[in-house]
């Protein structure tokens, strides 16, 4: 009898794939992290520096820039605009994405694949093209550019993410749950509202948060659609190109970063939790 050498996997062994060769993957991960955090650390340090220009060496420590943020109405206005636009786009994208997900996962109808494809298709259109396209729509219909048009544009680019996140959740739900609710006398919309939507709660929140973050930092599309009132990234883009008071913008960005970072962590937590 011949014995063949086998590479047994111990239980809990991480030696799936290249495990035993022990490539320094952990070191690589840490190096990537270091490169990612370096610029953020630089920004954080400069938000407290007394330099008037963004250059080394750092000349002193101050809270002036944070005070400057509070005294600058245009800066606060831009930040508020970004929050409003992102919240509106996230809400619309999540509602529409949920409708698409329910319709395509619970019904067989002509054009089902086409609807799903259409909802995900904005993912493959470069933002410059999408910006031009919606801009031409506004021109043709004679709609003035404003924060509303930015929010509408952001709904389109957030919809694929919203749809895919909700779709992943609803495909794991047993359709018999709705049938049971309807056997007990619920109409179909009521079964959706009282049974299906509550079970999808975390996916809906994750979809909203993801869409929010997609919109909040977006500038390439917004530049084509924005009116007189800028969002924060649009204002930042303008000042980075033509020069302007950068230190206060950095302080504002650090504050806004705290919001997006918090929302990202929350979305991540919800996506990983079972419900």
């Amino acid at each position: 009898m011949t014995t063949r050498r086998t590479h047994r996997l111990r239980h809990g062994d991480s030696a799936i794939g290249v495990g035993r060769t022990r490539l320094p993957l952990g070191t690589f991960y840490v190096a990537v992290l270091a490169l990612l955090y370096l610029p953020i650390t630089v920004l954080f340090v400069f938000s407290f520096s007394a330099n008037s220009r963004l250059s080394f060496p750092i000349e002193g420590f101050t809270f002036d820039q944070y005070a400057g943020v509070l005294a600058d109405p245009s800066l606060l206005g831009a930040a508020r605009n970004s929050l409003v636009v992102a919240a509106a786009a996230a809400t619309a994208a999540t509602v529409l994405g949920t409708l698409v997900a329910i319709a395509t996962m619970r019904f067989r109808f002509r054009g089902r694949t086409a609807l799903l494809g259409l909802a995900v298709l904005p993912l493959i259109v470069p933002f410059a093209v999408m910006g031009v396209a919606i801009f031409l729509l506004l021109v043709t219909l004679g709609i003035p550019k404003s924060l509303l048009t930015v929010a509408l544009g952001h709904t389109v680019i957030a919809l694929p993410y919203a749809t895919l996140i909700v779709l992943a959740r609803i495909s794991g739900l047993d359709p018999a749950l709705e049938d049971a609710a309807m056997d007990l006398g619920a109409s179909y919309p009521m079964a959706l509202r009282r049974v299906v939507l509550p079970l999808m709660r975390t996916a809906l929140i994750a979809s909203w948060l993801t869409s929010f973050v997609v919109s909040f930092d977006e500038v390439a599309l917004a530049v084509f659609l924005v009116g007189g009132e800028p969002t924060f990234p649009v204002m930042l883009y303008g000042r980075l190109r033509f020069g302007g008071q950068l230190p206060e913008l950095i302080a504002m960005a650090v504050l806004l970063m705290l919001i997006t970072v918090g929302l990202t962590l929350l979305a991540l937590r919800l996506r990983r939790s079972p419900a």
Partner: peptide, 30 residues
């Protein structure tokens, strides 16, 4: 989950300002 979160946090930070920070690091006076 923690390691994934650590990776995604910088992505949530302002893209334009992260670029700005690199300019600061790599520029003539960087």
């Amino acid at each position: 989950t923690l390691f994934l979160a650590l990776l995604l946090v910088p992505f949530a930070a302002s893209y334009l300002l992260r670029i700005m920070a690199w300019k600061l690091l790599l520029g003539p006076a960087g």
